[in-house]
Amino acid sequence: MTDISTKTLSLQEVRELAKSVLVAAGMDDPGSDMIAEIVVKSERDGPRSHGLRMLPVYAQSFTSGYANPAAHPTFERIAPGVLRGDADNGYYQIAAAAARDELIAMARENGIAAFTCANSHHLGALRFDTEPLAEAGLVALAVVNSLSMVVPQGGVRPVFGTNPMSFACPRDGMEPIVWDQASSTVALMDIRMAAAEGHDLPRPAGLAPDGEPSADPNAILETRSLLPFGEHKGAAIAFLIEVMGAALAGGTLSVDNAEREAHGALNVKGGATLIAMDPTRFGNAGFNDYVTRICAEIDGNGTARIPGDGRLKNRAASQDGGVSVSTELLSQLQDLR
C-alpha cells in the first residue's frame, strides 16, 4: 500500500471546503449548503468515498453544463399516496428535501406514501434521504438507478448501475436504524479510492480487461465493469431497482448514456422512488417492541451488529477528532475553489 500524506480537518473545515468548491462551480447558495452538508455527513459517518472525493464529480456536473446548479424542483400529487417530482435537472437530494414535509403528511394520512422523482442527479449515500423520515417516526425505503457499470450474472457488458437502496426505521430511545448498500459488490467510489490509495480491494469486485474477475481497482476502472453482490441475487436486486427507480419515476435507464457522454459526466439522470410508511397506521401497536426485540437478538450475538450502526461509532470519533484527508486530494480541491 502506498504511503499517503494526510491532514486532519474538523467537520466545520470540511463543510467550508465543500461549500467553496460547489459555489466556485456555480451552485446557488441553498443548494450548495445542502450538498456540502451531505459531504460532511459522509466524511463524518462513512463511507468517506462519498465525501470530499465526490466533490470534483459534483463540480464537473455543473461546469460541464450537465446539471442545473440553481434547480427549482416542482411537484404534483397524482394520487392520494403518490407525489411526483421533477428535479429541474438538479440534484435529487434537493428535491427530496423540498418534498419531505408533504410526503410525511401523506404517509401519516394514508399509512403509506411514495415520492417518485425524475430529471434528477444523485451522487452520494442514499441513506441521507431515508434517515430524516425515520427521525420523524416513519419506516422508509429508497431506491435510485445510476450509470450502467454492473454486469448481470453471466453477462459480458454492463446493464445496471450500482443501483443502491436504503432502509431506515425508528428505534425506541435510540438513533434510527439506517443502512444503504449498492447492488454491486463494491461502490464505484470505493474502487476509485482504493486505486488512489494504492491497494487492492478485499475481494474481486469487477472484470479485468481479460474478462476475468479482479480485485485490482485499476483493472476494474479500465473496464468499468463491476460485479453484482451475491452473483445472480445482487443482479436481481439491481433489476428491481431499475424498475422501481427509472421505470416508476420515468428517469433515464442506466444504459442510456448519450447525454451523459456528451458532457463527460459520471452519472445519468436516473429515477428515484422513496416510500414512507407510518407504523402507527399498520395495526400493530407493538411495532417499537418488535424492533427492540430484533435488535436485542443481534446485540451480543458474536461479532454481529445491527445494519448501519457502524456509522454511529464513526460519527462519534469524527465529531471529536475530525477526519484525515489526503494532502493530494486537498490540493486537487484547492484548485477547484
Rank of each mutant, 00 (worst) to 15 (best):
288 N>V: 00
292 T>H: 05
279 P>G: 06
291 V>F: 03
292 T>C: 05
285 A>R: 11
280 T>M: 01
290 Y>Q: 10
279 P>Q: 07
293 R>E: 14
296 A>G: 12
292 T>K: 07
283 G>A: 09
295 C>F: 12
302 G>F: 06
309 D>G: 03
312 L>H: 11
312 L>W: 15
294 I>H: 09
290 Y>V: 06
314 N>P: 05
283 G>E: 10
301 N>A: 15
298 I>V: 15
293 R>H: 15
304 A>P: 00
288 N>D: 15
312 L>V: 02
289 D>Y: 03
309 D>S: 14
302 G>R: 04
290 Y>P: 00
290 Y>F: 08
292 T>D: 09
306 I>L: 07
298 I>F: 12
285 A>C: 05
301 N>G: 06
312 L>P: 01
301 N>Q: 13
314 N>G: 11
307 P>Q: 01
289 D>S: 12
308 G>F: 04
313 K>Y: 10
310 G>E: 03
305 R>H: 09
314 N>H: 14
297 E>I: 03
285 A>I: 04
278 D>K: 14
280 T>I: 01
313 K>D: 13
281 R>F: 01
315 R>H: 12
309 D>H: 14
293 R>V: 02
302 G>A: 06
304 A>M: 10
279 P>C: 09
295 C>S: 07
290 Y>H: 12
316 A>K: 10
293 R>D: 14
281 R>A: 13
315 R>M: 13
297 E>F: 11
297 E>Y: 12
302 G>D: 04
298 I>L: 09
299 D>W: 13
316 A>Y: 02
306 I>W: 04
282 F>M: 12
286 G>N: 13
303 T>S: 14
308 G>M: 03
284 N>I: 05
307 P>V: 00
289 D>L: 03
315 R>S: 14
289 D>G: 15
288 N>C: 04
290 Y>N: 07
304 A>R: 13
284 N>D: 15
283 G>F: 13
310 G>V: 02
294 I>S: 08
301 N>P: 01
281 R>H: 08
279 P>D: 01
298 I>S: 09
288 N>T: 06
310 G>F: 05
291 V>Q: 03
302 G>P: 05
295 C>V: 06
